[in-house]
Write a protein that binds this DNA or RNA. Structure first.
Lengths: 340, 340
DNA sequence: GTGAGACTGGAAAGCGCATTCCGTCCGGAG
DNA sequence: CTCCGGACGGAATGCGCTTTCCAGTCTCAC
């Protein structure tokens, strides 16, 4: 009834434990063909399933990969997770998942828990916060690497971790340039609180590019870094639009630092009978999978989310020294929401 | 440099290994307060991190929970995963994730890998396939439970697993009734191949309810169980709509067995200049989070995805005997896409 | 004052496996 | 025919921790 152990298999096959181990678990030293056969048969006979825990203890490698994301139900992260998971499978690793609800403390707990489970590597995906909020996670990762693990972050630098950097600044700058090209000059930034580094990177680079192009940032709206944040910004954006229309000025163009915020914003504007793109133009960032089916279709910066997940895993499992190219491309995608 | 072991902590504190273990790892037997203090200090001093692998081996419980989903980047599954992950955290469990790309073989491999890692329980989320395709996974789960694990499935029965059942039939029937109430009589079913049990359940119950109400199912379109399948069905649906209009009949109402298919369909119809809901009505199923922001807003059956994930985990970690209520509610949500 | 309990801390036996080390056997070179 | 090297199977050790089991101490009732 109880699960058979390797010892049982060995007994059943009439060989020693060592031989059974060598046959079944990829040793460099393979016993003679006849014994191999016997052991295989015995294992099948008993329905033997190797105990990865015991293996991990003996080998002091677990084959586990810790993945911490800030919200697994957010398409941004679930896409990254999909890429990471696929890559992990290809590398013969299992993924331990933690979703932190965007709470830096939960992030630290997750890393600590992964360390306790002796994962071979940890991938932390998501924006960094203020240095104070990041410190505990960074320290935790420091200990983790000191203990022989490897840390990778998808986002901004954090402690000793290797970094897969989303092209936030470059993408936002290119987006601004493309919008300028289209003739937009009057912009509104829909960003998130200062502590959200990704939002700052995108909004900052966008603002700089706008200034460089001779455009104008009318206002910076700070909201939650989520769909509801975008929704909440709708009323203020509507006001700005009406003022512009009243003054006979060109309709303003809102850059939402995230697609989900753009979508929330558009939903609210629709409630308020503010037309996109006629009364307000809207652009987002990320090109999450569902975006292409929105109406109006939304201008955005497309970044390869799944590939970023894969890259992170590649960096996580790479041999020491083997530097993994972490260059991530991006592409501005102009759609209806910013049409003039 | 190397990670300190419990033995090192014990030495550092001048106590035995047993005492250190009792202090640090939740034993029922707590040593005297002075020793507790000394051990705690020593652990902090050395930066001790318990080795969960070794613990698991000694305790023969890992505290791990295996979650296998069919596509983590699909909102249906990422919502379930979010619920499962949150519940797991509350129960002090870690989640091992596998995403199978809707491949039954990969499903079996995932379960086998989880079994090897000696997870305490396995949750398999997603539709079942044909009995032949399900057999290997079922067998794997059988062995797993025989070895003392627990299996839970979110979907349809599978081997020995406890079941959290999405209200497919009831939801589809209620949706049909609600649409009947609205005056719809002419329906098209956008379903998936026979092997996709969830699609069959939904389409079947819907068709029955339509028949019972005196309505008519004009056609059953079979496509992939995904956004692209819905998209691909667009041309045929457009034809049907034009025929209806030509014959002066009421615009047909398409029931797509999944929201993502409905969204794909609507996208294609838009390309084809077929208006929803004027020329065709469309309803979906699931009420995935992003659905509410679609234009037109889409009629659907709302089911509590996150809660289903939570329920599954609750069933997975429940004591033997303690039966967990697995009743899952649903609600028909009528929106613009089926307005008359 | 004495013995029975109730506690407490420590020694030691595993948990299931990988791997080092050792002894044996074989073939081939000298 | 001898000797050496290589191949091969098995015994034994250890991975880091939990958990009996044991022996010693303390308390309290009698």
């Amino acid at each position: 009834m109880a699960r058979p152990r390797l010892q049982d298999v060995a007994n059943h096959a009439g060989v020693s434990l060592a031989t059974a181990s060598r046959v079944l678990n990829g040793s460099s030293r393979q016993p003679g063909p006849e014994l191999v056969e016997r052991v295989r048969a015995a294992a099948a006979d008993l329905g033997y399933v190797v105990n990865a825990q015991a293996q991990a203890l003996a080998r002091s490698r677990t084959g586990l990969l810790g993945l911490v994301v800030q919200d697994i139900s957010d398409p941004y992260f679930s896409s990254i997770a999909a890429g990471a998971q696929a890559a992990a499978r290809e590398h013969g690793r299992m993924v331990l998942l933690a979703s932190t609800e965007r709470d830096p403390d939960a992030e630290r707990d997750a890393v600590a828990a992964f360390a306790a489970h002796r994962v071979d590597a940890i991938v932390v995906a998501g924006t960094r916060w203020s240095p104070e909020e990041d410190a505990p996670v960074a320290a935790e990762l420091e200990t983790f690497e000191a203990g022989g693990g490897r840390a990778v972050v998808v986002g901004q630098p954090l402690g000793p971790a290797r970094v897969v950097r989303p092209p936030n600044a470059a993408g936002a700058a290119d987006l601004a340039a493309a919008l300028h090209e289209q003739g937009h000059r009057r912009f509104v930034l829909l960003s998130a609180p200062d502590r959200v580094v990704t939002a700052q990177e995108r909004a900052g680079a966008f603002a700089d590019a706008v200034a460089a192009g001779g455009g104008e940032v009318l206002e910076v709206i700070e909201q939650q870094f989520s769909r509801d944040g975008g929704f909440a910004a709708g009323d203020r954006v509507a006001e700005i639009a009406r003022e512009s229309a009243g003054a006979g000025l060109d309709a303003p163009c809102v850059f939402a630092v995230t697609d989900v915020m753009a979508i929330g914003l558009i939903a609210r504007l629709r409630d308020l009978d503010v037309a996109v793109p006629d009364d307000v133009r809207v652009a987002g960032f990320d090109d999450i999978p569902t975006l292409r089916d929105h109406v109006p279709s939304v201008t955005t910066v497309s970044i390869p989310l799944e590939e970023m997940g894969r890259l992170a895993v590649a960096a996580a499992v790479a041999e020491e020294g083997a530097e993994v190219g972490a260059a991530v491309g991006h592409e501005v995608v102009l759609r209806e929401s910013t049409a003039r």
